[in-house]
Design a protein around this nucleic acid. Sequence first.
RNA 1: GGUCCCAUCGUCUAUCGGUUAGGACACAUGGUUUUCAUCCAUGAAAGAGGGGUUCGAUUCCCCUUGGGACCGCCA
Length: 463
Amino acid sequence: MSFNCRFAPSPTGPLHIGGVRTALFNWLLAKKNKGKYFLRIEDTDKERSKEEFKKQIISSLAWLGIEHEGEEYIQSKNISKHVTVAEDLIKKGFAYACYCSEEEINEQKEKCKKQGIPYVYNRKWRDAKDLQIPKDIQPVIRFKSKISGNTIIKDLVQGERNISNSTIEDFVILRKDKSPTYQLSATVDDHEMKITHVIRGDDHMINSFKQKQIYDAMGWEVPKFAHIPLIHSEKGKKLSKRDNASTINDYIKIGIIPEALRNYLLRLGWSYKDKEIFNLKESIDLFDFQGIGKSPSKLDMSRILSINETYLKMTEDKTLFNFLKEYVSNFKEPIDKAKETILMKSMKFLKNKAKTLEDIWENAQYIIKEKIVINSEDIKLIDDLSKKIIRDFVTEYEKISSLTREALEPVIKSLIEKHKTNFKGVGQPLRIALVGSKFGPGLYDVILSLDKEEVLKRLKLII
RNA sequence: GGUCCCAUCGUCUAUCGGUUAGGACACAUGGUUUUCAUCCAUGAAAGAGGGGUUCGAUUCCCCUUGGGACCGCCA
């Protein structure tokens, strides 16, 4: 059996994390089922659709490694086809022109509101042969929705869903300017693209009932539906663009790496036994509809950070360094070429104390910055004894021909003995002089990561 | 308000009638360490409430409560 699915965002704002997850689920399922995953840009809202958002959506997905089959499908290019289908529906008696003015509709809505009953279009023009057609009104085309009976959708995630047809109104498929609405366009395109599985957010449930009627009316094969629960913000509401940290860019900005976000999103609302970390292959092999939960899940920043931390540690130094380079070039000041070699070598220990690329960058400031700034609290810790220790260290350090940890250890040890102190007594002043803070990477890592002249320069500066 | 849906630690979740209700994140405590971290160990932490069904319910059914989605000539 073939498996074609799609992700169909509208370019009316930056893609948020919920959309990304929907795309991920689609993509994973396509891979697993050896099917195809398409990207369709639903830009039929001319007012709000923006080219920049389209680009942002595509680049966000690419960043995560979600690649669609072929070119992205631009919905607006297929409008004439949508209109043809609408005309076809009219011919077949499944749609009709509605000449209600906007005022008339609004009046109805007001009236319903006052009476406290739900507004449903009153189907005035559904079978209105003897009604006088107003000359000054451009009609909309409405779909002749079923009045009685029930519609059942066997949802791959939600299970069997049953709705009374009477609750679905005669929805508009062509606006007064003859442009198609979402319900029509999406259905026609899904059919034309031979989509077999429509996997989308739970908020589309009702649309599936409407769209199924269009499929049936046209005599088209109805695809399988899967409605995945939405992601909620920390406030417990459907995620919106206004929630902070909801767009992909918010995560890229703080230095989350793609693999980590992919893993986080995968496990948000889906699970496989007790497994938490899934590499790409495992995600594809193990992902399925069955493991998707039915209730919405909340975004948890500390979890994202934790998974990112895990991935940072698992990532090879070279790869991680490239991530860092890309990150820095996008969000921070450029790094001196000469420092890059040192940074590359330092990845192996820098990654052990960071949750994000930004953390790595911050912890690497002592390498990146030409001049280190010692904060005023820490400078106080450099007393006369400290200076004496640093001086002694300099003397010994200068003598070392090949700088290794093995060569440094005896030096430090002898200083501890000589000054009757402990590691901290020796280590802290050195770290402050070299890093500018009493916090930082391991002392040996620090000393070995910097050039010999740089170490001497910094140490001499303080004594 | 109407329609539909959901309900296990704070969070993500496991359990597909019988478990000391498991794991992960976060949190707390202790240990290792070279500071901060890491790492290791330990701990606290959950079946919303009420009825059924059953020998036995977190699990199946109903009600209540709580939460959510939808209700556009937006998608």
